[in-house]
Design a binder for these strands. Structure first.
Length: 231
DNA sequence: TGCCAGGCCGGGT
DNA sequence: ACCCGGCATGGC
């Protein structure tokens, strides 16, 4: 490992300590079953979680939050049920393609995916229409408890704003940084990513400048800024 | 009111 | 290999 990446590694470890101390455990993913988590991962694409909850509640109230329940619906019916989550036509098709996959390959049970080799499973998930890297990794980490770090818009924004890694770097590069820096631990990855969302929502919105009350604000020290310039 | 939210796909360079 | 428009609701 190159000398300057040591600073990034240290920064990531310090970030986690600070965030955990500040916000405590986040108890993610907000969902009761692996299946519900997977559905939520698709519904929350570029969408506020509050809206996703409404869509999931709709499915629950109709007794349709199950693989057979959703699989039995037409695209039109499904779209109407998930309307509050936004992009409902697109997401109905994406849910459908995920369910086709789940029924065909795993008898409709998300748990059955856990037996498979993680790398191959990730590749299979990415071949499903409507599942990209973040959705695939959310399913792997939160539904199947595989040690795969999830990169989202908040993670990229918080890291770039604090001078750790430029936001135009790829998903894979961000993920590699975490995999190389942290112990391969499900619980750690789970809490850490959830903490990024937490701090991002509160202090690191898209257009606003970084708030100086952000618990990571003091990490904008010359040491870390210097490391950032060496990317 | 306008901005924002836990992406991904497809068509055009 | 990028770049960009489209997709859509609800909360602040």
């Amino acid at each position: 490992m190159k000398w300057y990446t040591i600073k990034k590694v240290n920064a990531l470890r310090v970030f986690y300590e600070k965030l955990y101390r500040c916000f405590g455990p986040q108890h993610w993913w907000p969902g009761d079953t692996p299946f519900e988590i997977a559905v939520g991962a698709i519904l929350t694409q570029n969408t506020n979680w509050g809206n996703v909850e409404k869509a999931i509640q709709n499915l629950k109230q109709h007794g349709l939050l199950s693989s057979h329940g959703i699989h039995g619906l037409s695209i039109r019916e499904l779209a109407s049920l998930i309307k509050p989550a936004g992009y409902f036509n697109v997401k109905a098709k994406r849910l459908r393609s995920f369910l086709d996959f789940l029924m065909n390959e795993y008898h409709g049970r998300v748990e059955n995916m856990a037996r498979e080799d993680v790398t191959q499973l990730r590749a299979k998930l990415l071949r499903i229409h409507g599942i990209g890297p973040e959705t695939a990794d959310s399913i792997l980490l939160y539904a199947l408890e595989k040690p795969i770090f999830v990169i989202d818009a908040y993670t990229k924004r918080v890291l770039s704003r604090h001078g750790i890694m430029a936001s135009e770097r790829s998903y894979a590069e961000f993920q590699e940084l975490f995999h190389a820096s942290l112990k391969r631990e499900v619980h750690l990855y789970n809490e850490y990513h959830a903490l990024f969302v937490r701090v991002g929502k509160t202090f690191c919105r898209r257009t606003k400048p970084l708030c100086d009350r952000c618990p990571l604000h003091d990490m904008l020290s010359p040491v870390y800024l210097k490391a950032a310039r060496l990317l």
